[in-house]
Design a binder for these strands. Structure first.
Length: 810
DNA sequence: CAGTGAGCGAGCTTCCGCTTGACTT
């Protein structure tokens, strides 16, 4: 490539993504060199806000540390080029990227052309090349306003939290609203009072002309409030006659869902494949880089014409002409910028790909959804049946569906979030006609509760944010990860609780009552706000209601639009926002109390001391006794993961003070059980072993079981050391989560995959340590901390990516 | 990385949106 550049790179095209660059280069031929900027190349400086508020909000831009090499290369290529084509996306951010490139690369208007395309097809690219335009500075200004606003909000608000709640917390236009949604939903759930009623379901039978019996399930059109009413109704039915009153048939059609956007892909991958949003994005990224799907960060539901015709071809040849029905979908989400296509297979005739299981499954989803979107409506007939009960005004109701023509259903059926336990998918009905008399097999009235509002899954939260126009396709996954990293939210399974329900059954001419138990409220992989999340949210809602308002983003987006069309100067818009906002910040710093979410639960009956819960330095805690009391210090205990300041009772809090507790002696040393930073544990001889979640209870655990845990832990620790050397006790070969590694003086070093860890000699190990040390010299000054992706655990220390990159090059 | 929770205070944390690798213990 540099070869080509040196010869005659007359035309340098710069796009945002390297995978895109590769594709486009193929379309453009040898006179064009296509390079990537890898997204934004500059950002606001981190120090001093990066915005000079006293100088008309002058932004201080610096080249991002991980983009220095990219910029250097682009600068040298520009010098060898006659024309530079800035081909970043056609949206606010893309325009800004073009402008930053223009500034940083020292381009002139004469040598620069700005081009845009919304799909990566040869026609679209060639057309774009024929229609260049200048950089739209108004659009750039709209982006600067967006960027500066987010910085001002984030960097003024977060320090308020450090002072008033806890260090290292954060607030921002997007994340704070995301947390608010979760907190408000949690409160709705806490305030929810389940109401119950008896739902009556009957199993009837009808005999056809051949004497064959067919079963029919039907539900009563009324739910009884009390068990007595239900009992009376069933008793009445013992001798009742059941007659088909009416049979109606109604045809209707169903249409396929639109092709995937980032948000809908995340939702469906979550529902159908159980992927987290981060997982979905990283799998999609790999498919994209391998050229198998189009760009995965998009808010557009549009398909390129070439893709539609490829889909038509494929549907025709696989399923026949009658399955074809092309459509143009329109986006419904607020603030969509539609710089790309919808997510679809690059080659629509490919119905599967090679790769990991996850890649194959996600591709399959994308393939089917894309094809289905261009397939015929399904035609369905629904049959409704009403059944009268002699001597009663209530009626039973049954419905069934018959698919007359499957259409797109042949390919793809969209899933839904709501699990309605009371409803069954309508199936087939036996042949029935009006005035048929039905026989009764059995009937039951089961107590059912109204359901609490559901907690958000990651993907459901993304959908909600998108609906409100908050956040962008590129930020959904990172936002979800940020609010978890800050400790505002945890993603968890909750087992649910047993709940009794009453049942009245009519069977064999007898009506009987019983009480049974079901499990209620179990949650799988849902987002729960933590106490910190709630306290921070309440603080922000109280002092900055305008910022965490659900409409805030929509409002500022309107301003940005006005800037983009040149009606408003961006610095003016920012000034109008910042003056009052800054006063709000100052006032809050001055007036507001420290917020610890403190709640007084009552007094301990044994000691008469007050019991309170609040957020302490190490998280939510309970406190027994006053801090002001002179004679003795209060006792403290951390809340467990499942407990919350908002819902804990006095009894539960008092229990916490019973820990740590002595279980007895083992090998002449004390065995103690307690709850620590990582949950319940047993301690023995200076070593800790975790209690098994859902199995062991720290209040109940026996000495015998504790010893088991200690022994298991010992076993694991023994396996941890693969090899050690007498000559060098600091060095050990250890067994870790990702396989064997070398531990040396508190640092860890990788063992190359091809080496057998057990056979390594001390010399070889020391060499690996030395090599590893060379690769990562200690440039601890690098202030940019790497964001980890999906898992959200931030365990990495600062690393020097720069040194590694340049080393890898040669 | 584990039984903490006062107060002192240095130095640090933090936003959103565009992009990929790097590489974990």
């Amino acid at each position: 490539m540099t070869q080509k550049a040196k010869e005659k790179a007359l035309n340098l095209v710069i796009v945002e993504s390297p995978a895109k660059a590769k594709t486009i280069e193929k379309f453009l031929g040898k006179d064009f060199l296509v390079k990537s900027s890898y997204g934004h190349i500059r950002d606001l400086a981190k120090k001093d806000f990066g915005v000079d508020v006293s100088n008309n909000y002058q932004p201080q831009y610096v080249i991002s540390s991980d983009k220095k090499d990219v910029v250097k290369e682009l600068i040298s290529l520009v010098q060898q080029s006659e024309t530079v084509w800035l081909a970043s996306d056609e949206d606010r951010e893309g325009e800004a990227i073009a402008w930053h490139l223009y500034e940083v690369l020292g381009l002139t208007p004469a040598q620069t052309k700005r081009i845009v395309f919304h799909e990566i097809t040869k026609e679209a690219i060639l057309k774009a090349i024929k229609n260049p335009r200048p950089i739209d500075i108004n659009l750039v200004d709209a982006q600067q306003a967006r960027r500066v606003l987010d910085r001002l909000v984030g960097f003024e608000l977060s320090p308020v939290l450090w002072k008033k709640v806890k260090p290292s917390l954060s607030a921002g236009r997007v994340q704070s609203v995301a947390v608010r949604l979760l907190v408000e939903r949690e409160r709705e759930i806490n305030a929810f009072n389940a109401d119950s009623a008896f739902r009556v379901v009957a199993r009837f039978f009808v005999t056809d002309e051949d004497g064959k019996k067919h079963e029919l399930r039907a539900e009563l059109n009324h739910r009884f409030k009390t068990e007595e009413e239900a009992f009376q109704f069933l008793t009445h039915c013992k001798n009742g006659q059941f007659t088909v009153e009416q049979v109606t048939r109604k045809p209707f059609t169903k249409s396929p869902a639109a092709p995937f956007t980032t948000s809908t892909l995340q939702q469906e991958a979550s529902r159908k494949l159980g992927f987290s949003v981060g997982q979905t994005m990283s799998v999609a990224q790999r498919l994209y880089e391998a050229g198998k799907i189009t760009y995965m960060r998009t808010d557009s539901v549009n398909l390129a014409d070439t893709a539609v015709s490829a889909a038509v071809q494929k549907i025709k040849s696989d399923m026949g002409e009658k399955y074809v029905q092309t459509r143009q979908f329109k986006t419904k989400s607020k603030g969509a910028q539609e710089a790309h296509e919808a997510i679809r297979p690059t080659y629509i005739d490919k119905d599967s790909v090679s790769g990991t299981a996850a890649e194959q499954k996600l591709y399959d989803l994308i393939y089917k959804r894309t094809l289905a979107s261009q397939m015929s409506d399904a035609r369905i007939e629904r049959t409704n049946v009403n059944i009268t009960v002699s001597g009663s005004t209530y009626k039973f109701h049954a419905s069934g569906e018959v698919i007359l023509f499957d259409g797109f259903l042949k390919m793809y059926i969209e899933s839904s979030d709501v699990e309605k336990e009371d409803e069954e998918a309508p199936g087939f009905l036996p042949p029935l006609k009006e005035q048929d008399v039905l026989g009764l097999m059995a009937m039951e009235a089961r107590e059912r509760w109204t359901q609490k509002p559901p907690r958000y899954s990651e993907a459901a939260l993304v959908r909600k944010l998108e609906e409100q126009g908050i956040g962008r396709p590129s930020t959904y996954a990172p936002t979800i990860s940020t609010i978890q990293q800050r400790g505002y939210v945890v993603k968890e399974d909750r087992p649910g609780n047993p709940r009794k329900y009453r049942l009245v059954q009519l069977e064999g001419g007898e009506v009987k009552k019983s009480v049974k138990t079901e499990n209620a409220g179990a949650e799988r992989s849902k987002l729960f706000p933590t106490d910190i999340g709630m306290v921070v949210n309440d603080f922000l809602v109280k002092y900055f209601p305008n910022i965490v308002d659900y409409e805030f983003t929509a409002k500022v987006e309107k301003e940005f639009d006005q800037i983009a069309v040149g009606d408003v100067q961006w610095t003016k818009a920012i000034d109008q926002f910042y003056q009052p906002f800054h006063n709000q910040v100052e006032e809050t710093l001055e007036k507001s109390e420290r917020n610890t979410g403190e709640r007084v639960l009552g007094t301990d009956p044994k000691t008469g001391k007050p019991v309170i819960v609040r957020i302490g330095r190490y998280g939510p805690m309970a406190q027994l006794g006053d801090t002001e009391a002179e004679d003795e210090k209060p006792a403290f205990a951390s809340l467990t993961r499942e407990q919350s300041i908002e819902t804990i009772t006095l009894e539960e809090a008092l229990k916490l003070f019973e820990l740590p507790r002595d279980l007895g002696l083992y090998e002449e040393k004390k065995v103690v059980v307690g709850i620590g930073r990582f949950g319940p544990y047993v301690r023995h001889d200076g070593k800790f072993a975790s209690l098994k979640k859902g199995v062991d209870d720290p209040m109940e655990i026996s000495l015998q079981r504790a010893i088991e845990l200690i022994e298991e832990k010992r076993e694991r620790d023994n396996k941890k050391i693969i090899k050690s050397f007498e000559e060098e006790p600091d060095l050990q070969i250890l067994n870790g989560r990702w396989g064997p590694y070398i531990g040396y003086k508190g640092k860890n070093f990788k063992i190359p995959k091809e080496k057998d860890a057990e056979k390594l000699t001390l010399e070889e190990c020391l060499k690996l340590v030395e090599d590893g040390g060379k690769k990562a010299p200690a440039t601890k000054k690098a202030t940019t901390k790497k964001k980890t992706t999906a898992s959200g655990k931030n365990t990495t220390a600062s690393k020097s990516t720069k040194a590694k990159k340049s080393a890898a090059k040669k």
